[in-house]
Every structure is written in C-alpha cells, then in structure tokens.
Computed example of a mutant assay.
Amino acid sequence: MNETASCGVLSSAASTAGLLSMTEYLCIKKHHTDYRRKGNGRADLWVADPARQISWAFEAKQVRCAPGTRPSTLEDAMADACHDASRLTDLEADRFYGLLVATLPEEDLEDLDDLVERLDAFADEVDIACKFGGGARPAYAFLRLAQRIKSR
C-alpha cells in the first residue's frame, strides 16, 4: 500500500459517509522557505461536510514499519506531514492536518508485539488515531492538527 492509495481509501470512506472529497488536487501553497511567496502545488486529500459548511485538508506521509522502527521515525514523518499541511493557504480548507499512515511488514515475522506496542503508544502523541484490523496485519492512521504559518 502507498500514500496515494491510502488517501484514496480515506476519500472513498468520506464519500460513503456523505461527504465531499478529492485526492491529489491542485492548490496554492506557501513556499517552503519564504512563506510570503506562494505557488502552485498539490495536496493529498480534501474532505468537506456541506451540511456543516466545514472542510479539512490533509497532507500525508506513509511509513512501512519494520520490527526495529523507532518512535523518532514516526515522529519525523508526522512532522513532515504537518509541515506540508501548514504550507496550504487558508483558501484550501478550514482545518489542516498532517496524516501519517503506518503499515506493518507483510512478511511472517515471529514477534511484532513490540512494534505494535510502539505504534499504540504513538497514538497517545497525536490528536486522532485509528487502528484498522481485519486483515493479516493492522494498519494505523495518525492525525495531528498542523500549526498554521502566517504569511508576513
């Protein structure tokens, strides 16, 4: 599974729930070093609830975890996602989130308990966490509200 596919699944779920959604859409972003400058960019996922007149924009990263995956690896990927979300302009949505999708190895490894414990612990470090089961291995979605960058 990859980042684009993960956003597609979340977009489909939003549509099934009666929300509007788009993936990989063109947008205006703040420059990565000079936030006064803006340019064309791409965002990973946009979801809106027309009844409540609210929308959310998400920038996603994906980590394919291994038994030795450290919490800092997860935190670094989440920080990257939040930074990307913070570069979206206020015209894009009402709320901006970094989204981290974490998957477990497909190989049949004997001891994934430590890795699952680290992922479960990381859930306490974010605003929203979901653990999806039902398959051979669980997958995780972690969301953190991105800090907004003010243009000068």
Rank of each mutant, 00 (worst) to 15 (best):
S72C: 12
E107Q: 10
T89C: 10
T69N: 09
D124H: 11
F122P: 00
D90F: 09
M78P: 00
M78I: 09
A60H: 03
G134R: 07
V63R: 09
Y97N: 03
P105M: 04
E59M: 08
C130K: 12
V116F: 03
L119K: 01
R118N: 10
D84T: 03
L115S: 04
R95I: 06
V116A: 11
L91I: 14
A77E: 05
K61R: 14
M78Q: 08
L115P: 00
T69V: 05
R95V: 09
D127F: 07
G134L: 08
I54R: 12
A79S: 12
C130E: 14
F96G: 00
H83S: 11
G133L: 08
Q53T: 10
M78F: 03
Y97F: 15
D127W: 08
R52K: 15
V101N: 05
L99K: 02
D94Y: 05
L104E: 02
F122C: 02
Q62R: 15
D114S: 14
F96A: 00
A51V: 15
D94S: 11
A85P: 02
A93M: 06
C65R: 00
E107W: 02
A93G: 06
Q62K: 14
L91A: 15
V126T: 06
A60M: 08
L119Y: 05
S72W: 09
D76Q: 13
D108K: 14
E92F: 03
L112F: 02
E106A: 13
P71F: 07
I54E: 12
D114W: 09
E75I: 11
L88Q: 06
T73E: 11
M78S: 03
E59P: 01
L100C: 05
F132A: 11
D90M: 11
A57T: 07
I128E: 12
V126S: 03
L88F: 11
T89P: 06
T103S: 12
P67C: 02
R64V: 14
Y97M: 04
